[in-house]
Design a binder for these strands. Structure first.
Lengths: 119, 119
DNA sequence: CAGAATCCTTGAAGATACTG
DNA sequence: CAGTATCTTCAAGGATTCTG
């Protein structure tokens, strides 16, 4: 084994998962990412897709995602203002994670889904 | 005790993701699940794998996971007490989600990892 | 060993109002 | 349209002690 062998991480093998949750956790980030997966959206477009979120929260979450290098914020110098949000290339690599969550959610969280098949 | 878990499905397509995050979100649940993926563990075994978690938190999180039908809690009538935690079949279906997160975490959260590959 | 019972702190999240 | 700026609340999470 090469000499990069064991770096002293303060926690051991569990951390990758924990770290991801710090990025896509929170109450809204996962859903925001989900909506940005295959679309570039403007601020209010995202907002409309998240019933219940406040402007403040949306701004917060988007800024944190931007700081994590996950989301790209494109500001157009127009009046009225226009800001578009999209995934960075790094953000796009999260697709498998989001998709896996989406799939599991559909199969396990929506009783109607399964009930519908048996109806 | 009634499980009032996911009745908040008043939002539309984003919810699958949101619902999953309610289950594996929180500060510790994802990591707990990660450790239970391929092992049945006793209370203190899990605790040792999560540096920094308190007994209270661990108990809490495990109970919530149990209430979500994700974790099975096996109590042995012994002295001293012995309680084993494992994934239910439903819990095991979360594996792809956890694995996707683990993979992404390894590739994006540990700079050493990428540095190692480019060397 | 695996918790239950308390008490306490913090900050995540919400409500509301204002603005370039 | 896309934000700030405050104020406030509530519950997630933590620290500590006790116990079958």
């Amino acid at each position: 084994m090469p000499n990069i062998a064991h770096q002293r991480l303060d926690c051991t093998v569990g951390c990758p998962v924990e770290g991801v949750l710090e990025i896509i956790g929170g109450k809204w980030k996962g859903v925001i990412l989900y909506h940005l997966l295959d679309e570039t959206l403007r601020f209010n477009e995202i907002r409309r897709r998240l019933p219940g979120i406040t402007q403040r929260m949306l701004t917060n979450q988007l800024r944190e995602l931007e700081a994590s290098g996950i989301v790209f914020r494109q500001v157009y110098a127009e009046v009225p203002p226009k800001v578009e949000y999209s995934l960075t290339s790094k953000g796009k690599t999260l697709a498998p994670v989001i998709r896996a969550m989406e799939l599991w959610g559909r199969e396990n969280l929506l009783p109607q889904a399964e009930a519908a098949t048996s109806r």
